[in-house]
């Protein structure tokens, strides 16, 4: 067992905190959105579908820039927060979490949507004729049968947020102990001539976490 230094522990704990909170928070809107997209037809569906996928196709720095415009001190939402609650969102760990959530959202929606649309509609119809209400159908049929998609979504958005770089450095900065997650720490150390060993150790840590996440998801999917 290699002992981790205080620096590595701080970076690691922050990364896990940001990644896990952001994927838990993203779960609820993702599930609702995936459910709507998989089961309902409404006007503007393809527009919403496109908007959801924007973070996947846009350069992450662009997302960071949008977030800075929206949540910055002068931004639309940031201004309200600052004047009413005296809270500044940008350059805090909450900013890092928002950035990861936005980047992970499309991945989450995609995998849940996939598994909801694979549910045989006959099962739901049967449940309806047997008198189950919507909440019961959701609890007893949709959630259990889309379990694999939900788990895959969790793992995907968790890993996405562990790897998030562009949006985070633009919107949340690179502040040690506050917003410096693993990729940012690796980036910073890469620019320090005396930190080659730290780079290798941090890279090792991030490979280890990602592999662990993948293996856990494989185990849960069985």
């Amino acid at each position: 067992m290699i002992a981790l230094s205080d620096y590595e522990i701080t970076v690691l704990l922050l990364s896990i905190k940001v990644a896990s909170i952001s994927s838990i928070i993203t779960f609820f809107p993702s599930f609702i959105m995936a459910y709507l997209l998989a089961t309902k037809n409404f006007t503007g569906k393809s527009l919403i579908d496109g908007l959801i996928h924007l973070p996947l196709v846009l350069p992450p720095v662009v997302i960071g820039f949008f977030l800075l415009i929206i949540f910055g001190k002068n931004g639309l939402v940031g201004d309200i927060f600052f004047s009413t609650f005296n809270i500044r969102i940008s350059f805090s760990w909450i900013a890092a979490m928002i950035a990861s959530s936005v980047m992970g959202f499309p991945l989450f929606v995609r995998s849940i949507r996939q598994s909801i649309s694979e549910i045989d509609p006959k099962i739901i119809e049967a449940a309806q004729t047997l008198g189950a209400n919507k909440i019961k159908i959701l609890k007893k049929i949709i959630i259990p049968l889309s379990k694999n998609g939900i788990i895959a979504g969790f793992i995907l958005s968790f890993s996405r947020s562990l790897g998030e770089f562009g949006a985070t450095i633009t919107f949340a900065g690179n502040i040690f102990g506050e917003t410096q997650t693993l990729p940012l720490a690796i980036y910073s150390s890469l620019q320090d001539p005396d930190a080659n060993l730290i780079v290798i150790r941090l890279v090792g840590i991030s490979v280890f976490i990602s592999m662990a996440a993948l293996m856990i998801s494989n185990r849960l999917n069985k």
Binding site: G72, K73, F91, G173, N174, I175
Partner: peptide, 21 residues
């Protein structure tokens, strides 16, 4: 200490000043 934000270079200091961050 927790109110200092370190930015990567002179240009980013100028940019984040201009957007009042």
């Amino acid at each position: 200490k927790n109110q200092i934000i370190f930015l990567k270079d002179a240009v980013s200091v100028r940019y984040y000043l201009s957007i009042k961050e």
